[in-house]
Structure formats: C-alpha cells, structure tokens
Simulated assay, not measured.
Amino acid sequence: MNTTLQIKLWRIYMGYKHIEVKQVAGFIGAEIGSVDLSRPLSDEQVQEIRKALLKWKVVFFRALKVSPFSL
C-alpha cells in the first residue's frame, strides 16, 4: 500500500477527510498538516480544524511561510 493511500485511510479513520492530524503528546496537543493557511480555507477544513482543537486543546501548524504582509 502506498504512503498517500495510507494517509488518506488514516484521515478517514480518525474522522478527518480534509486535513491531517497527528497527536504529539499524551492527551493534549496535535499537529495539523495538509493545510495552506496562506489561502482561504474551505468550510470543511475550518470545521475539521475546530474539531481537532476541541479534541486536542492545543494545535500546531508546522512549516508555515509567514511574512508580515500575509498577517
């Protein structure tokens, strides 16, 4: 099974179809991936990010390219 298919199946299993959520510590904290925050998010992505935040209490977005103009 290729890696892309494994990721898609894991997202569905965890209840996320539009983002990746990876637990980073015990019962608190998760890393969110497959999201480009420099572009408008779909309603589904926003809903899933909120779901992850409610479940994990703290979420991290890694490797963001943020400039003063994008804020």
Rank of each mutant, 00 (worst) to 15 (best):
F69H: 12
K8R: 12
E31H: 05
F60E: 13
L71K: 09
V21F: 00
Q45W: 03
P40V: 12
D43C: 01
E48S: 03
K55F: 08
V24Y: 02
G26I: 07
I49E: 02
P40K: 14
Q45M: 12
G15H: 02
G29P: 07
I7Y: 04
S38A: 10
D36I: 05
R11H: 07
S70D: 13
V46D: 10
L54A: 05
R50W: 14
P40I: 08
E48M: 04
R39P: 01
K22L: 09
I28K: 13
K8E: 15
L41V: 08
A25H: 15
L37Q: 03
S67N: 07
I12H: 10
H18A: 11
Q45G: 08
W56F: 08
F69P: 04
L41W: 06
Q6P: 00
V58G: 05
V58H: 11
V46N: 08
K22D: 12
Q47F: 05
E20K: 03
F69R: 12
D36R: 10
K57L: 04
P68N: 14
F27H: 11
V46G: 02
W10H: 13
F69Q: 14
L64C: 10
K51Y: 05
A52P: 05
F60M: 11
I28H: 08
R62G: 06
R39M: 13
L5E: 15
T4F: 10
W10V: 08
Q23V: 03
L41S: 06
V21A: 06
I12E: 15
A25I: 06
A52D: 06
M1R: 12
R39S: 13
L54W: 06
S70Y: 07
D43F: 01
V35N: 03
V35W: 00
I49A: 04
K65W: 08
V35G: 03
Q23L: 02
R50V: 15
K8H: 10
F60H: 11
N2A: 09
F60T: 12
I32E: 00
Y13F: 11
K55N: 15
I49W: 04
I49T: 07
V35T: 08
Y13E: 14
H18D: 14
L54K: 09
F69N: 15
V21M: 03
Y16S: 00
S67C: 05
D43V: 04
R62P: 13
W56L: 01
S34H: 09
D36E: 12
P40R: 13
Q23I: 02
A63Q: 15
I19H: 01
